[in-house]
Amino acid sequence: MEILIPVLILLATAVICAVLLTVASIFFAVKENEKFAPIRECLPGANCGACGYSGCDSYAKALAEGEETNPSLCIPGGDGTAKNVAAILGVEAADVVERVAYVACNGACRPEEKKYIYTGPKTCHAANMSFSGDRFCIYACLGYGDCMKACPRGAIEINENGVADINPTKCIGCGICVDVCPNGLIHLIKDTERVVVKCNSRKKGADVRKYCSNGCIACGKCVKNCPEGAITLVDNLAVIDYDKCTGCGTCKDVCPVGCIHEGCFLCGSHFE
C-alpha cells in the first residue's frame, strides 16, 4: 500500500498540470487571422526579405491583416505566387518584376598575382579592410565569397578568375548579396534589361590598363555609338540608363575591352 501515495501524488500533479494546460490553451487562445495560413502556404518560404519584410511569415501576416495591400512583392515566387495570394485576398495581381543579380567585375586584373599576401580571415569584408584587398584593382571582386555564403539558394560560385559568378537560373533576385558585397559590385537588374557593364573601376583608363585587360577604360566609344544616348560616363565608368536602353547591343560590339556584356541570360522562367 505504501507505493500508492507517491503514485497518487504524481498522478494528481500530472492531472492538475494537464487540466491547467488545457484550460489555458482554450482561454488564452490567440485568434490567428484565417487568411494567414493559406497566404503563408503560397509564399515560397525562402525568408529572403526581398519583399521588404523580415521573412515570409511577417509578409503573410501583413497581407492577412491588411497592413500591406500589394500581393506582388514576392520576387522569388514570381507571378504564380502573386496570383495565388491575390486570389486569397480577392484583389487583382500586378505583374511581378523579376530581377536577377550580376557581379560587375570580370576579374581579369591578373588573377594569378596578388598585391600582397593576405593571411587574415577569409572573408571579403575583412580583406577589404586591409588596403582594399589583395587584388591589384581596388574595385575588383575579392573572391572570398561573402556573397556565396549569404546566398539563400546557393546560386553563387567563385570562378577560376576568383570572381563571384551568379547562376541566373538559380538566382531568385532577393538582393541579399547586394548588401553583403563590401565593394558594392553586385547589382540587380530587371528581367527586361539585357546589357550590363561588368566593371566597377573608377580609375582612369591608363591606370586600369596597367593591371586589367577587361576593365572599363572610359574611352567613351559606347557613349558615342549608342543610338539611344543611354550611356554616360560617370567617374570614368560607363553607366547604362535602362529607361532609354533598348538592348540593341551596339555598345557591346564597339567596346574595345569587352567589359560590356549582352545576353538573354535573364530570359525564360528562371525561377522554376
Binding site: 498540470c17 494546460l21 489555458a24 488564452f28 487562445a29 490567440v30
Partner: peptide, 24 residues
C-alpha cells in the same frame, strides 16, 4: 520523488508560460 516531479512540473509550467505570454 523530487527529480521526476520537478521534470513534470517544469515542463508543464514552461508550456503554460508560453501560452500566457502569447496571449498577453
Amino acid at each position: 520523488l523530487e527529480t521526476i516531479l520537478f521534470i513534470l512540473v517544469i515542463a508543464a509550467l514552461v508550456q503554460f508560460v508560453e501560452i500566457v505570454l502569447k496571449k498577453f
